[in-house]
C-alpha cells in the first residue's frame, strides 16, 4: 500500500463511508473499493459478501490470495424522545454495540438523572442534528408521538438514507403522520421505509419489551440492508 491509497482510505473512514482495502498477499499491492462500486465476477461476489458481513478475511480469487480488510462505520442509533422506552433501550443498545444518542427538547424528560451515562441532547432535533448529521450507518427511532418533535427528524432520516427509520405510534397515529409527511413532499416510496408501529411484532407490551422489539428490528435492518441497490442515498 502506498501513502496516497492510505489517505484515500482514511478519508472514507473519517466520512463514515464503508470501504474495503483489498491487498494482494503476494506483492502487497492494494486496491480500495467503495460500497456500490460495480465489480463483476468472483471478486464482485466476494466484495458484496464482505460489505454485507462487515467481516475481514482472506479469499482465493483467480489464483491470487487476497485479503479483504472491511472498514464499516460503527452503527449509530439516534433516538428522538427521552421517554421510558428510551431509558430501557439505552443499556441494550450499548451492549449490542450501538453508539446511541437521545434527543429531546423537553428538559423535563431529557435529564441527566433519567439518562446517566447516555449521550443526551436537550435540544430540538433541528439543532442537534446540525452538529452531527444523520447518515446511512445511523438508525433513527422517533419515540415522542409528538409531530412537532418527530416529523423533522423522520424526514431528515429518510433524506440521509438512514439504514433504519422507525416511529412509535398506533396505525391510526401513523396514518395521520403519513398524511402530514406526504404533504411535506415525501414520496410513498420514502414513507414505506418508516417502520410503524415500531418494532418487530412480538406483542411487546411494556416499555422494556418495546425496546427489545425495536432493537431487534434495527439489527435486522442493519444485517439485511439492500446492498445491491446501494444505500439509497439521495443525491444531495
Amino acid at each position: 500500500m502506498d501513502l496516497a491509497l492510505l489517505k484515500e482510505l482514511n478519508a472514507e473512514r473519517a466520512a463514515r463511508r464503508a470501504a474495503i482495502l483489498i491487498t494482494d498477499t503476494a506483492d502487497g499491492r492494494g486496491q480500495l473499493v467503495r460500497e456500490g462500486d460495480e465489480i463483476s465476477g468472483d471478486l464482485g461476489d466476494a466484495v458484496r459478501r464482505a460489505f454485507r458481513s462487515g467481516k475481514s478475511g482472506l479469499a482465493e480469487i483467480d489464483g491470487r490470495e487476497l485479503f479483504f480488510n472491511v472498514h464499516v462505520p460503527p452503527p449509530r442509533l439516534v433516538v428522538i424522545g427521552a421517554v421510558h422506552i428510551s431509558q430501557a433501550l439505552a443499556p441494550m443498545a450499548k451492549i449490542a454495540g450501538f453508539d446511541m444518542t437521545v434527543i429531546d427538547p423537553r428538559t423535563a424528560f431529557a435529564t441527566e438523572e433519567r439518562f446517566a451515562g447516555v449521550a443526551l441532547r436537550a435540544e430540538w432535533p433541528e439543532d442537534a442534528l446540525k452538529n452531527r448529521p444523520l447518515d446511512a450507518y445511523t438508525a433513527l427511532a422517533a419515540l415522542t408521538h409528538d409531530p412537532k418533535i418527530d416529523d423533522y427528524p423522520l424526514t431528515a432520516a429518510l433524506d440521509a438514507g438512514c439504514f433504519y427509520v422507525g416511529a412509535l405510534g398506533s396505525r391510526k397515529t401513523h396514518a395521520r403522520r403519513v398524511e402530514r409527511l406526504r404533504e411535506g413532499g415525501l414520496s410513498d416510496a420514502d414513507l414505506e421505509r418508516i417502520h410503524a408501529p415500531i418494532g418487530l411484532d412480538i406483542a411487546a407490551a411494556s416499555p422494556a419489551e418495546i425496546a427489545v422489539a425495536t432493537l431487534a428490528q434495527i439489527i435486522e435492518a442493519l444485517r439485511k440492508r439492500d446492498l445491491a441497490g446501494g444505500l439509497r442515498m439521495r443525491a444531495a
Binding site: L6, N10, E12, R13, A14, V72, P73, P75, G97
Partner: peptide
C-alpha cells in the same frame, strides 16, 4: 460487528500510519 474505530481517533493505527 467488528467495526473499525472512527478514523478521526488519534489512537487509530491507520491514522497514525498516515
Amino acid at each position: 460487528m467488528e467495526a473499525s474505530s472512527a478514523a478521526t481517533d488519534n489512537l487509530d493505527p491507520l491514522q497514525v500510519a498516515e
